[in-house]
Design a protein around this nucleic acid. Sequence first.
DNA 1: GAGACTAAGTGACTTAATTCACAATATATT
DNA 2: AATATATTGTGAATTAAGTCACTTAGTCTC
Lengths: 250, 250
Amino acid sequence: MAGKATNIPTATILRLSIYHRYLQSLMERGTKVVSSAQLANGTNVNAAQLRKDLSYFGRFGVRGVGYNVSKLLRQIKEILGLGKSWNMALIGAGNIGKALLQHKQFENHGYNFVLVFDKTPFRVGKEILPGIEVHHIDKLKELAATTPIDLAVIAVPASQAQEMADTIIEAGISGILNFAPARLKVPNHVALQHVDFTTLLDTLTYALSTKEKKGAYYNKKKEENRNTRWDSPQSWPDHMINYSNLLVTK
Amino acid sequence: MAGKATNIPTATILRLSIYHRYLQSLMERGTKVVSSAQLANGTNVNAAQLRKDLSYFGRFGVRGVGYNVSKLLRQIKEILGLGKSWNMALIGAGNIGKALLQHKQFENHGYNFVLVFDKTPFRVGKEILPGIEVHHIDKLKELAATTPIDLAVIAVPASQAQEMADTIIEAGISGILNFAPARLKVPNHVALQHVDFTTLLDTLTYALSTKEKKGAYYNKKKEENRNTRWDSPQSWPDHMINYSNLLVTK
DNA sequence: GAGACTAAGTGACTTAATTCACAATATATT
DNA sequence: AATATATTGTGAATTAAGTCACTTAGTCTC
């Protein structure tokens, strides 16, 4: 059935974005049609899962044939709300903030920083980049009234992050991408994602530590593959691909 | 039972890191003892889940009392493999890479960039920061032999990311944090995490779009809370906290 | 246009993660 | 030392996510 009202797994949305990106690269390469197996392989996903992910939203393929690349691309854009351009405010003009501002990828995808805020005295009022002035965070609500903001990106120290989030929400913004190492509390209508460097690194060290200590959490299941060498980088044999680095951030 | 060999959910490891950080802040504030309820509240997690997370590794609390902050902190450090310091190589000395190099948080947590690589001619051989020279990526294997590297951070364009990952793995490094917008394939013994800005943003726009269109995916379940106002930032009423931004990256 | 073939779509099943709810065990109090 | 109270630890129940395997519906060939 098309476009069910069933609960859509959060992970599905994330994968949709990944399919989207891969489809774009197929598009650029001039590929017209793609099968669920190919698309799944290119994004490290199970083919049935890909089909199920799409099935939450409709029927986009042709049986016996596959998916039309440009059509599916358009449809995923529609689902995710891409296609239009989104205004973002950067909160925090430090190292990370500045790097994000200069990150080309964002504008290519329709994400544009239109306002920058900080509260550190020596930053406020300065031009952080040619043509981009840093405003005091107190002006957020006022400026957001004239320049509508869809999303806010928090890149301040942990100690200030919650306070910034509250300010952002009070200004009527209801999407937040948080780079500060702190788990924010936001009311239910606000969409929130965390980018948490050290937490991700910690999961890596855990993996490395257990490998050393117990000798291969990994190898347990895959011991039979020992003879299968992986000497040809670029295309690891399928059974050696690491599907295990799942990640959850609340 | 303590320290079971049961399969430990990946999400548990991630939350352990989050508890760890919160415990550190409690420590700094001088708190000696904390209950699962407090700790869970501070990290936006269900108290039973926190206890279960810990139970995979042992029994760390005292019934009727709670957890000793410094003791639990030490034990989580032990589990995650923190405590020692980890050598990292940065692959890609562009905007993001440079920002990561300057990111103080890393050294505070025992993560140190000891080598920087790139392949862009005008960057190689230059000092990207005082005292830090950029090496050509071809030297990775050679230099990694003298300076042991635990983790590699990829911050190159998507088109080069897989190639870099292969090089890294060939040099014997088996932990990767990838900032490039591409899903990498790595053999099973390699631990991998993705930091995928646009994908995260896409999940936010999805949330915003569906809210607009269908009017509240969110409110459905929480309609009864409409009368409960959230006018006091900093402490949103519990039932309004957004627990829904789960995230998965394969 | 009949038969062979391919690949989407999906209900049923399996596996994994989360939450409940209560027994176990500690402290504090009188 | 008996009772009240607090809070952990965990088996059992629940909910959610992922995979299998089959049905359906297209295209292609002769």
